[in-house]
Design a protein around this nucleic acid. Structure first.
Lengths: 216, 216, 216, 216
DNA sequence: CATGAATGAGGATTCATTCAT
DNA sequence: TATGAATGAATCCTCATTCAT
């Protein structure tokens, strides 16, 4: 029963992503989502409080997965460089492999609507915190000089977000993933990242390990 | 006559900025803008094609001014560092001194609506081009290594935009202008900016000049 | 379900006839029709595409019934005289017994609006064809000399229509039905109708039969 | 001055006929009429009370001319046949030579609007009276049996009107004037018109005179 | 007389949401 | 749980008319 519930919940969420990506949140009627999900209009309201709630829960659910998967990958990273690389790579490839979701995230979720913004804030602040932790850790590990963590986070998230929006709007014909290395290089410069091998040149085993991660 | 026309055009635009910033574009009735501007509802439509057209022309007009003023200031800059500083400083202080406009720009203009996006694209691409020109010039002047100009622009604009949105949403209690120096430091690192005095250490007079500019 | 649907469709149509006859099509708000029909405003749009569509479907529906009932009565007529009488009598009595509909038909449906005219044309041409068939048949049966069928139809329909409009506008205090016999006499003269008894004076049984029909 | 006044009055009227015929009364903005007439919007209101007043005065003016010209021609007619012929011929050829006016008369003037109808009624009743007089005179001169004058007028006007509307709507490819003779034949039959030569076969001079008129 | 910029009333329609079944 | 027919709130825009010049 609960499984069936979740089945329908996710079916509606998936239908919503496609429908909203296709026609936009306002243009997309609840009845279209219902049709795509194979349920009656009224059934939507057994799982979601409102149309807006679909958008919010959609973001919370997918963004939660996204952050969890980054956190998981970060576990295996030894260096700040590797951590940054993980963030950039995961951000770009996740978006590139979920274009409909990216459209919703980059365009439709930018609703000037207060309640949407507030609800979105939660997962977004989680992501911000994650980025800030990586920077903070870099500072503590002395890979990064004492910089303004808040502003650095703005830079990192803002850059990733802008690149993703550019790609969604097809402002350039490039793939999103082709931006990983150049973006990473900028971040490393911005953070004055001292690479492991630069100061740890006598512990080549660490370096190798890290290289492996970096190239994966 | 034409003067009066322009007077009314701008009065409506100013009224729209306040009204939209206060209640949001969709929630804000045309009659509210008319009331604020001190004209009849119908008069709006002598100057604008539609409610949406107000939003579009608003952005085009104010963003045009903004870009023109940056371009003007850039004329007087001798170094890439000074140019970057001009961009960051002008961006942040313009927004901080026009909070209602910033709200409209950062929140209301992010309409997922296609025709709005298309109309907004023009001035936005102008701004992108301006940033890219600064970077390109830096490369040509060998102040900046050969980097990916497109991605660097994404970083710079994305960072400024995210910082502005953070400030508008009051995600932090900081002023926007307090972010100028830290953000600039990040950009300089990202671009591996070779400062004038580093390689021109024998022409200290230039350095002083540039410093003066930077502190203005 | 479908029965309820039809029930509501007709209730809206009846409400529309009353409301439009009372205040005119343009003056009559959709919400007034909804109120009269006992449904919500939005419900109207489950059954009709637009306010104009109500007017069109109204004519198609009622004019369809009207033509069908004439066609049905014509089946039992043996002579052209009887057929003409059926047309005149049915036209006048139908209108006289449905004054609101007549008002809509004679006044409101004369919208100079193209899409209304086009939609109305269908049933109207049906009626024209019906009249022309009666005349043509009269010619073939040699009750009527070879006249211009098209012009004869114009005369018959034009006369009936004008008389109905006169009555609707109360240009005379007469009842519409009091015009049946005089109008019929004119038509018979116009068509030089050779009455049955004139050339069939030796088959009085036919005459009687036809008289019976004519007076029914 | 008064001449100039009339000049402008008529220019506006002519502009209105073209504009209304082209786009319909409701679709045709006052400013379009003003542009066509070469005057400012406000000037219209120096000559007409309202937009509706244009329509009304237009009909009164042109219909007045039309009726006057028929009355004038009727003066020279000796027989009812000649008079009927004059009415049919003048009606059809006037309309055929003034198509824009015909469009306005047959379509746009059929406004379900009460004040328009009332104002139109005047000239229309004049025309009705004119027709009725011809019939009445026919009865008095014993060219026509004692028939219902009111209904006969309905038939005559209704037929002419319907034929004109058919032509305006291009329901048939025929010219309007090709309907003169067939229509006249129908009217003569309807009125049981005793032609002069039938009962005056001993006064051939009258007959000749009338023939001449009839063929003109 | 002439202008034309300014006025402001007025209503069809959509679609998220409900609730009887 | 699931349905889907019914609900009804909420607003942009047009354009005839005015009146200061």
């Amino acid at each position: 029963m609960s499984l069936q519930r979740e089945g329908k919940f996710d079916r509606i969420l998936d239908a919503a992503i496609e429908a909203i990506a296709e026609s936009g949140f306002h243009q997309c009627q609840v009845s279209k989502i219902a049709r795509l999900a194979g349920v009656a209009d009224g059934t939507i309201y057994l799982y979601f409080k409102s149309k807006e709630d679909i958008l919010i829960r959609l973001f919370q659910s997918r963004m939660g997965e996204f952050i969890a998967s980054i956190r998981n990958e970060l576990e295996h990273c030894q260096t700040t460089e590797a951590r940054l690389r993980t963030i950039v790579r995961t951000h770009f490839s996740y978006m590139e492999h979920n274009r409909s979701l990216a459209i919703v995230t980059q365009l439709e979720l930018r609703q000037p609507n207060l309640s949407v913004r507030l609800a979105i804030n939660g997962p977004l602040l989680d992501y911000f915190r994650l980025i800030e932790e990586v920077i903070q850790q870099g500072i503590e590990r002395e890979e990064v000089p004492k910089i303004d963590v808040w502003v650095a986070r703005q830079m990192i998230f803002g850059s990733l977000d802008e690149a993703t929006t550019d790609w969604v709007l097809a402002r350039s014909p490039r793939t999103l993933e082709s931006g990983i290395e150049p973006m990473l290089a900028l971040f490393e410069g911005a953070l004055r990242l001292r690479k492991e091998y630069e100061y740890n040149r006598f512990t080549p085993e660490e370096k190798r390990e890290e290289d492996g991660n970096a190239n994966s």
